[in-house]
Structure formats: C-alpha cells, structure tokens
Amino acid sequence: MRAFSTMVKTELKLSLRGMDMVIFAIAMPVVVAIILGIILGNKLAFEGAGYTFFEQSFGAVASIGICAAGVMGLPLVVADYRHKKILKRCKVTPVSPTMILLAQVVVNMIQSIVSLILVYAVSAVFFGYRMSGSVIGFLGAYLLVMLSIYSIGMMVAGVAPNIKMANILCVILYFPMLIFSGATLPYEIMPMPLQKFADVMPLTQGIKLLKGTSLGMPIENVFIPIVVMCILAVLCMGISVRYFRWE
C-alpha cells in the first residue's frame, strides 16, 4: 500500500509539472463549458423542452476530462516510460504491472475529477447551472464512464509496443470519441447515420447515461449500456495485465 500511495503521489506531481494533462484534461473541458455557456445562453434544447441546451450538454462536457486523461494521458505516459526503459528498470524491482497501471489510472482519475468539479463550478457560477436530476445517479454514471474509458486506456498503455503505436491508437480512439460521441459536438444535431455510428462507441452510451441522469429523465434500457461497459472494462483490464509489455 505504501508503494502504491508513494507511486501515485510522485506520478501526480510529475504529471502536474508536465502541464500536458493540466491543459487537456483540466483546462480544456472548462474552456468548452465557457464557450458553450456564452454561445447557448439560456436557449432551450428544443422548442417546448423542459431544459436548456446547456443543461443538456453538461454531461457531455464533463466527460471530456475522462477521455483526455483516460485514453490520452494514461497510455501516452506509460508508453513513454516503456520507451525510456523506465518499465525495464521496474521489472528488476518487486513492482507488479497491475500496480504500475493502477497508479497511472488513479493519477489520471484525480485529474478527471478535478475537471468535473471545475466544469460544474464554472457552469453553476457563470451560467446558473443546476443539476435537475439525481446527483447520485449522475456520479454513478460518471464512475461507470470512467471505468470503461480508462480500461480502454489501460489496454493501450499495457500493450502498445512503442510511443508511435500508442500515439496512433490514442488518436484513433480519442478524437472520434471526442467529436462523435457528443462530448464536443452535441449528439442531437448530428444526422441520423452519424448518430448510429456514434452509438457503437462506449463513450456515446456513457454520455447518454450522464445526460439522462443529470436532466433527471427516465432512461430507457439503462441495463444494456451498463452491462456492455462493464464487460468492456473487465476485458480490457484483463488484456492490459495479461499481455503487459515491460519493453
């Protein structure tokens, strides 16, 4: 436990010193929230809707921090450590791959959560945002999204043979999810075929849950996305530990 907490503490310091994740995982979601707030103002989501467009987008914006840290920050740091042979040095110590990966997961989760808090604070203070749905439900959905996105990140982190490959995988995973899942472009304004494509991505399912819980809407078929995301998480984490590459 001491090993784990020291690793998390040190890696968190290094991550903050590096600034990359501060910009992508913490500052960027806040900036998106501000831009959306200014553009959308109090516009309703659609005619006769009981909530504003901004309220509808809150869940999606909150998920940007998860994606940036989970599928970009996490795998890139681990791939970089592999490239620098830091993992090779770890192999001649008693540390396990699980501990290395989990320490990075926790470091990035902390940053995702900070970004959530800041996005909420900015939305509440400047744009009068109030969560009309259940806070507990929303946090539950948030954790679930975090779990499934981070497990994808762990898998890339565990098995990417080099930085280049990790980079490519991150770009392939990160940007489509960011753009098409509704995290930046609102899902509602996408044409039908694009929505169908987006539905395949776990983040899209996650954002639907976040949206539903934050707006306090009844969610249909909540069971299927939860099961799909949990299976994905277990599968990816298993692969990341089983096929972990030290070098």
Partner: peptide, 30 residues
C-alpha cells in the same frame, strides 16, 4: 528483486523527477 539491486547501462528515469522523489519512490517498492 527484494534482495537484488540492479543498475542498467542506460540511465532510465522520469523527466522532471528530482533526486529525492526518485529515491522515495524506489524506497517504497521494497
């Protein structure tokens, strides 16, 4: 590797890590 210490030819450590931090995190593994 609880009982064996290793120094490799290439020095491998994180960017921006300090001497004390590297020692502390190594210390915590054993």
């Amino acid at each position: 590797f609880e009982k064996v210490g290793v120094q490799f030819q290439e020095s491998n450590y994180q960017d921006r890590i300090t001497v004390a931090e590297l020692c502390e995190v190594t210390h915590a593994l054993y």
